[in-house]
């Protein structure tokens, strides 16, 4: 079926050039392994472009992105994560390189190549805190500007196939910084993904469908996510053990928008089994 569609696209491209096909799609785009994203208007993340991946501070976007990072690492691609405010927890990402990433979309594609990519993190605020503060200039450094510098250096290294720039709730990205990043991107083959937390808005200000198109200024592709219903509960012996809402998303590219919805394939993590410890008998359990 897909082959027929590809042939049809090729034939239509001959009749209406430049509308149906773009050269070397398979290489220029980083597929995420998430079917809803790969088969839609985005088709993945474009190299040499800035893509925006946004949502509320808790919206499922990082969980989805971790799925994509796992897919890239198992495909032999190198990924860097710039954690501006050092908020990531190492245990969540420890086995990403091995293809183990916890909750994944139900129809996530699996991939395993001969080579495995690397996943590295730069914890910017922590690095600044550890830096030599006898230097007065270092003390005045802005963590957000510092993160931009780190991203630029990562881009210039031409080592990474994808760089995730977690800006947190800070939306600071001046024209000058943006231009520098774009310039560095042009000389690299990296896909830059800006991970952004949106602020909570009152309900009367919501429902603005144009916000995604306007919010992604200068971005090749813009994606927004949020938790949604139905919420899946897994019950333990004494009540709810796990809560897993559905993730709802909206993708915008070239003035087109597409909605998506994905459910997560979750399980109750069993840390006590994984990390056996000597029981502490002095402190009673609640």
């Amino acid at each position: 079926m897909n082959a027929n569609v590809a042939v049809l696209k090729q034939q239509l491209e001959q009749l209406f050039p430049g509308k149906w096909l773009t050269g070397g799609d398979g290489d220029r785009l980083l597929r995420t392994g998430i079917r809803e994203i790969d088969s839609g208007i985005a088709s993945g993340f474009a190299r040499r472009q800035i893509s925006e991946w946004s949502g509320l501070s808790s919206s499922g976007k990082s969980t989805l992105l971790r799925g994509a990072v796992t897919y890239w690492c198992t495909s032999g691609l190198n990924v860097a994560y710039v954690d501006t405010f050092s908020r990531l927890v190492a245990s969540d990402w420890a086995f990403v390189k091995d293809g183990l990433n916890g909750p994944v979309p139900l129809n996530m594609m699996q991939r395993k190549s001969n080579s495995t990519g690397e996943f590295f993190v730069v914890r910017v605020s922590e690095n600044l805190a550890q830096a030599d503060f006898t230097n007065e200039q270092a003390r005045k450094k802005d963590v957000r500007l510092e993160a931009c510098w780190v991203v630029e250096q990562l881009l210039r290294s031409t080592v990474f196939d994808a760089i995730v720039f977690d800006m947190g709730s800070s939306v600071f990205l001046s024209d000058r910084t943006y231009a520098r990043l774009k310039r560095a991107l042009e000389r690299s083959k990296t896909a830059l993904i800006i991970l952004k937390d949106q602020h909570l808005k009152p309900s009367f200000a919501q429902g603005d469908n144009n916000s995604i198109a306007n919010g992604g200024w200068g971005c090749h592709t813009s994606m927004q996510f949020k938790w949604s219903t139905p919420v899946r509960y897994e019950n333990g012996m004494q009540g709810i053990a796990l809560i897993s809402p559905t993730i709802q998303g909206s993708i915008a590219r070239d003035g087109q928008t597409q909605n998506m919805e994905t459910r997560l394939n979750t399980h109750v993590p069993n840390r006590l089994f994984t990390h056996p410890q000597i029981p502490d008998r002095r402190t009673p359990k609640v």
Binding site: S62, T63, F85, R87, V89, S91, G102, H267, F273
Partner: peptide, 18 residues
């Protein structure tokens, strides 16, 4: 071997507050 690969992975991605 004992519990399968799923025992190694964590749940949803946690972002700690500073």
């Amino acid at each position: 071997e004992s519990a399968g690969s799923s025992a190694l992975v964590s749940g949803l991605v946690l972002k700690k507050h500073i």
